[in-house]
Design a binder for these strands. Structure first.
Lengths: 213, 213
DNA sequence: AGTAAATGTATACCAGGTGCAGAAATACTC
DNA sequence: GAGTATTTCTGCACCTGGTATACATTTACT
């Protein structure tokens, strides 16, 4: 495609990676709040000003890796095979993620991943930053539902917030268990069962909590 | 009940109110990010250190008024008449809120409320702070569902995140419309219809997006 | 009236983040 | 390959939110 990234571009990517790597390493070793951005900049051999040119805020040094997932649900809905229902596509995608131990499902127990997850869950400002991804994911998914499933705007938005909320709840549940010791393999069966239950709930509604029995 | 608030207690309340009032006034006039906490402290005739003794962070100067709503859904579920379904109680409560133009439903167009709402929606750090209320509301509601509706833990948590997400989506939708000009009375009928649609969706599920027709 | 506990203040300080002016590196042109 | 224009990086000063410390003031209790 682009046979020439160009020197400037390559250097930028290297600097970006250098800063990110230095940050993650230091944060994992000493804790997010115990390391200042100045220290990160120094470790990456870059000025503080340059660091902020690459990452808008300290939190982004950690969460920028998850930025791709912001539009993941929307992409899954758009890319589903013709005739397939959006919810089915999303469920299958989530189950695939579990099977492959995709970190986004919370079911990856590689030591680094687990430590990173735990750090995020234990750091309020990082959790807050993650919430913004959630909001973005809701918007993108709502749009995708509206455009590809012929869903009215309000319904699309409501469905999107429900779906995203449920997916995060599932992932958060898995992540929390692993972060505090359970192994991914031990959790797998339960995670699958929970996910299937959750998507069934999404599809069929909260009958248990509604009137007409 | 407590015939004696005590002088110390009364002074605290007055200081608390003085700081909050000064903050809201200044923020509405000049914008949240344009006013420093030092200015708020000065206007309230209090030291900066004291201000932070009353409010843990700048954002709380604005959102502390909404703290009560964090457990509102949980309280509604717990206080529902015997035999009533949780979802029904929540829906009725929300519809009552709309009728009474409760600001939490986004349907109050008193100028101050509208300006405050708009300020919050336009200020990322305030939105982030609101998200934390959402998380708290989810937890409290999940607990209430588990304890009073005999709902299994996972189901309770999933139901809670769905319900809270939907309520916030409805309120956010109303608030956004009002913040940008629509009147509460003009919006009322639509808001009611939307709420009923949303709660029906919660109860019956996202059939439109699921497979088995 | 006098003392202990709580609250408030002043000051200095730290960390995240930005504006600015200039130095250094890269890309473009002849 | 030299020279110039454009990015990018840097160092520095600065602002703001938030905290630690040490001291003064006020309230409550006897």
């Amino acid at each position: 495609m682009d046979g020439k990234p160009g020197l400037r571009e390559r250097k930028k990517q290297r600097t970006h990676a250098a800063i990110s790597d230095a940050a993650i390493t230091l944060f994992l070793e000493h804790g997010f709040n115990q390391v200042s951005v100045a220290q990160v900049a120094e470790a990456a051999e870059v000025s503080k000003r340059t660091l902020f040119a690459y990452f808008p805020a300290k939190e982004d040094l950690v969460v920028h890796r998850l930025a791709d997932h912001e539009t993941e649900a929307a992409r899954v809905v758009r890319a589903r095979p013709p005739g397939a229902a959006p919810l089915t596509a999303l469920r299958d995608h989530f189950l695939t993620g579990l099977r492959e131990r995709d970190p986004i499902t919370g079911l990856n127990d590689a030591p680094q991943v687990r430590r990173l997850t735990r750090m995020i869950l234990d750091t309020p400002s990082l959790v807050a930053r993650m919430e913004r991804f959630k909001t973005g994911a809701e918007r993108a998914l709502a749009q995708a539902l509206q455009e590809t499933a012929d869903t009215p705007e309000l319904t699309a938005r409501l469905a999107a917030v429900q779906i995203v909320a449920v997916q995060w709840a599932l992932a958060g549940d898995n992540a929390e268990r692993l972060a505090y010791g359970e192994s991914a393999d031990a959790r797998y069966a339960g995670a699958v069962a929970d996910a299937e239950h959750a998507f069934a709930l999404l599809a069929n509604g909260l009958r248990q909590l509604a009137p007409g029995e």
